[in-house]
Design a protein around this nucleic acid. Structure first.
Lengths: 232, 232
DNA sequence: CAGTGGTCTAGACCACAGC
DNA sequence: CTGTGGTCTAGACCACTGC
């Protein structure tokens, strides 16, 4: 396997950074230097540097040069949807409620809407091997194209519901994760008889203009979910 | 403000995708078509397409063309370190223990080492406004350059401790997040008198060859932490 | 002023898809 | 075979930095 030249350049420089030969805020050799070093044209060298910049290894300052970046030690990527997580996958879901309501003030505030606008409520229970493992409640601002067929709602994830009515590319999403004790209602739904912690995940979806279009809160039995994230 | 031409191309195509004019798996106009359309050279067009590809909007298949990608609806980025979270920041930390131990079998398995290798244990308590909010325990495989000064240990985050002894660029990190009830010991450390859920975060750090170099488990009082993530 | 990175061109050759 | 994307070149002009 013969790599293209720009890949060679990328790997050489990555190696120098990983090995400590080049340290954060050190200057990477200038483009012209690298051209001579590799016998490559400037565009080829630049392609390599662009990749390094994109991967977070270096940054460039016009007129000065390219420099090694300090790595982001605390950045993780997490793939989350309410039906699928690392311990168990939801194999069944039960629709508790689909309704159109007028939000109370708290909810209206959350959704940045007014108390006289319609909001869709969807409440579901998720099961794994016949046992209830999560209680899920969603509030969606009504827009055309929203799912109204119950069968669709039962199996859809939150972003899927919203993206039916708008291009998914324009959506901004936020997660909020915390631990909580269940109240009476949740204990009943989730068959909890003694003390058991819940993992609560709130998803908020915003449109292109950062207006909220939906809120989803999922209460997972603590013994049935583990969220996983990783660097890179 | 006049944008470079490749930015214009990027924004035009992004707009077509966001507005739904181009849908997932639709073909983007070919490079030659775009060259003519914008009166640009092929390298300029390609630069634009490269950016779109990098941002996850499109993908290219040699010999066929470029196509609109299905957005990753479930991808989030989370910035986590054990001393800093969305409700409160740790303003004080107390070192409970720094020690060198032989791991038991379970720990040795976790760290993929043997029970006769030295492991550093660090246990800390984190405080916010004088109140204990998290209990933190770390296991590090010993390597040269490890922090041994207590003052350093008290304030360092997990990746910082490890990166003292190796280039941080080569580290792979994993997060595991779940909810749990505190045991007696944790209740004591965290001043918990009635039932309160804990948010538990495990960090695992691996070196370039995917060998574990450290494990860190942090138990947060559920009422004192909320992890935040967001798309893009 | 010389050196740096940022943009851009007008060619070239290649491997691969599909007809 | 034509059209596609992937790699690469050898120039060019620009704006910026630092001496």
């Amino acid at each position: 396997m013969i790599n293209p030249m720009y890949i060679t350049i990328v790997e050489d420089i990555k190696q120098k950074i990983s090995s400590g030969q080049l340290k954060p805020s050190d200057a990477v050799p200038s483009e012209n230097t690298l051209c001579k070093e590799y016998g490559a044209s400037r565009m080829t060298v630049r392609k390599g540097l662009a990749i390094l910049a994109n991967d977070g290894y270096i940054y460039s300052i016009p007129g000065k040069g390219s420099f090694v970046r300090k790595p982001e030690l605390n950045k993780y990527t997490i793939y989350y949807d309410e039906m699928n997580n690392s311990i168990n996958t939801v194999d069944q879901s039960r629709l508790l409620e689909v309704n159109i309501i007028m939000p109370d003030e708290k909810l209206a505030g959350e959704l940045q809407t007014t108390i006289n606008k319609n909001v869709i409520v969807i409440r579901r229970l998720f099961y794994t091997e016949g046992k209830p493992v999560a209680y899920d409640i969603k509030y969606l601002l009504y827009t055309k194209g929203m799912p109204i067929v119950e069968k669709e709602i039962e199996k859809a994830t939150f972003p899927e519901m919203v993206s039916g009515s708008m291009s998914a590319f324009s959506l901004k999403k936020e997660l909020s994760i915390y631990a909580q004790m269940p109240d009476k209602e949740l204990k009943q739904y989730l068959n909890i008889y003694d003390e058991l912690a819940l993992l609560v995940v709130e998803q908020r979806i915003y449109n292109e203009e950062k207006k909220p279009v939906g809120l989803c809160v999922t209460y997972f039995r603590g013994d049935y979910i583990k969220l996983k994230g990783s660097s890179e």
